[in-house]
């Protein structure tokens, strides 16, 4: 075990893990986070706290992580390189660790032009891959990015990275995943999977290169709430592929929400059978309360005890 992360423990014990996602609010009241944590903590092994998702200002992921921790959940703080340079990133890593965070997911971050401050300056001092390496070097070398040694306790994070099998160039996606693993990623959370066929091809390439043995690959799923949401994901979200078949199913459904849950459960059951998939990450954006139902229907409840 490299860290005190509960997520790492469960993964190393070979459990098929379940993670969820909580989007921090656009205000300073933490009650929603606490409520969602209470709702989800028995159904997921860890919860991602998004970092100003889609470049919209929200309560910070680290602060949200503290609320999750206090409410009994296992936080995975997301950290984008969009808004902070290497000084701020490392400072926040030290701070987050001191507050009890043990998992971090290193991301590029959505471009600020998508958010509510499109005239902001972006940072991108380092990229997501370099951030992974920074977190790893802090942990394993006890060194800052500049090479200077840490004189006291080092932050020991279980390091996460994202992979998007649906972006292009497809052939390079697996290689970039390998680069991230080489840089130090311990676990991988993928973009939401709707195109199962493409994901299977991706995983075949992952297995070919033995990457599933070097890092834990957690497959992303998203329950769709409506046909409109499905179409939006299909047409307007970059780096996302939603097959027509899924949009059609959502359109024909008498109860679209139930159909969305059913599709998601089917996907999870299928993902469980793919060699190299170590868990699922359920991204129920603005619909966190559905996660327990999905986990139960997918046969993933109760969750294992990390002891």
């Amino acid at each position: 075990m490299k860290t005190e992360s509960k997520l790492e423990k469960l993964l190393s014990q070979g459990h098929f893990v379940v993670s969820g996602e909580i989007g921090p609010p656009k205000h300073a009241n933490p009650e929603g986070i606490k409520k969602h944590t209470a709702l989800l903590k028995d159904y997921v092994d860890a919860m991602n706290l998004t970092d100003n998702q889609t470049a919209i200002v929200r309560l910070s992921s680290i602060a949200a992580g503290v609320h999750v921790l206090q409410a009994g959940g296992e936080p995975i703080i997301q950290m984008t390189v969009r808004d902070r340079n290497r000084i701020a990133l490392q400072s926040d890593l030290l701070g987050a660790y001191s507050l009890g965070m043990r998992n971090v997911l290193c991301l590029s971050g959505d471009h600020q032009s998508f958010g509510n401050h499109p005239t902001a300056k972006n940072v991108h001092d380092v990229d997501s891959l370099q951030l992974i390496k920074i977190v790893k070097d802090l942990r394993d070398q006890k060194k800052f990015a500049c090479g200077e040694e840490l004189k006291g306790n080092e932050p020991r994070f279980f390091i996460g990275a994202a992979a998007n099998p649906f972006a292009d160039p497809f052939e390079f996606r697996v290689l970039r995943l390998e680069k991230k693993i080489n840089a130090g990623a311990d676990f991988i959370q993928t973009q939401c999977i709707f195109d199962m066929e493409r994901f299977e091809r991706f995983m075949a390439m992952v297995r070919e290169r033995g990457l599933h043995k070097k890092a834990h690959i957690i497959a992303g799923v998203m329950p769709l709430k409506s046909a409109k949401a499905a179409r939006y994901m299909q047409q307007s979200v970059a780096g996302m592929i939603v097959p027509d078949e899924i949009v059609n199913r959502m359109e024909k459904a008498a109860d679209p929400k139930a159909e969305g849950v059913a599709i998601c459960v089917e996907q999870i059951k299928h993902l469980k059978t793919i060699e190299g998939v170590a868990g699922v990450h359920i991204m129920a954006v603005m619909w966190e309360e559905i996660i327990p139902t999905i986990v139960q229907e997918a046969g993933l409840y109760p969750r294992p005890d990390a002891g």
Partner: peptide
């Protein structure tokens, strides 16, 4: 758009950048 040195990011699709469908993805 993100000055990534180890690209491409997850927003590259069909050779274009997520920021603007007119802009080619440099990493592609």
């Amino acid at each position: 758009s993100k000055s990534i040195l180890n690209g491409p990011c997850g927003g590259s699709q069909n050779g274009k950048c997520e920021v603007n469908p007119e802009t080619p993805c440099a990493w592609q």
